[in-house]
Amino acid sequence: MIVLRALVVASLLLAGLAGPGCAPADPVPPAGRTVTDDLGRRVSLPDTIRRVITLAPNLTELVFAAGAGDRLVAASTADDYPPAVERLPRFSALPVDFEFVATLQPQLVLATDQVNNPRDADTFAALGIPTYFFHFGSVDDVLDGLRTVGALLHTADRARRTADSLRARLDRLAAWSAGLPERPRVLFLIGDQTLFAFGAGSYIHTLIEAAGGESLTAALDTPAPILSDEFVLTAAPDVIVGAFGTAYDPARLLALHPSWDVVPAVRKGRIYSLDPDLLLRPGPRLVEGAYALARVLHPDGLPPWMPPPSSRP
């Protein structure tokens, strides 16, 4: 039972469910010394960091976005983006293959409390490797995390520019959607059979709002609720967006939940499924996820400057 519980938690966290936000970390000095991570742990760092590993795919994406991809000495088996990770040796991050990681001799391990066990840090400490833990609740947490990664890995300027540009792109979308005459009521789902969703405090509601929608699960107390069919029928979403992958057949959702035939989104055929990596990973591609949301929420009302969907490698 304990194993199962741990699995439930781990699988939810792998999906990138975010808890309530916490205060962003203190600005990290460019090199050396001791810093405080998102869990309030004191982390002593070497002056120059050239060898890094991350324990979660979103952190790998953040390292590349911060312009420090060349410092990664390996990728976890869950990493699949950006394409440059294909060249790296692979290791298991869940559970951590400590022996192999030790042979890689990283100077710093980046981890996130949403996927990794904070106790892993103790084992790394015993190996003489410092671990920096991130916590990503809100979109701002993610952008602050990007800046922190840059500060830790000596690419602070590049990371700041990337973070500012991501913020500007999101703000531009939000400014456009603020002027929309109507905002569809959106139900965002992580699972199609068992209705895992995002509750209060998640970044997903920020993305949906910027994309011109109103997220129906924003007010649920639980960070990672499992919704009842009754809730969906009562909430009556105009649009249902799932993170089930772009190849998903919307008819499957109705087949799994036949009682939803009266839900407005189903009646109007407004069920969409998007690439989960853009929306479930609190990383630099969340902004792209917001644009993907906007394209399905407002297929006819898109502004001319909206970029076309990027093709995935």
Partner: peptide
């Protein structure tokens, strides 16, 4: 329970996994 856990660990599909764990 161990057989179940093995099957879930070895499963490549996280969506099915979540549904199964709830079940």
């Amino acid at each position: 329970g161990a057989i179940t856990a093995f099957a879930t660990f070895a499963s490549p599909e996280p969506d099915k996994l979540r549904t199964l764990l709830f079940f």
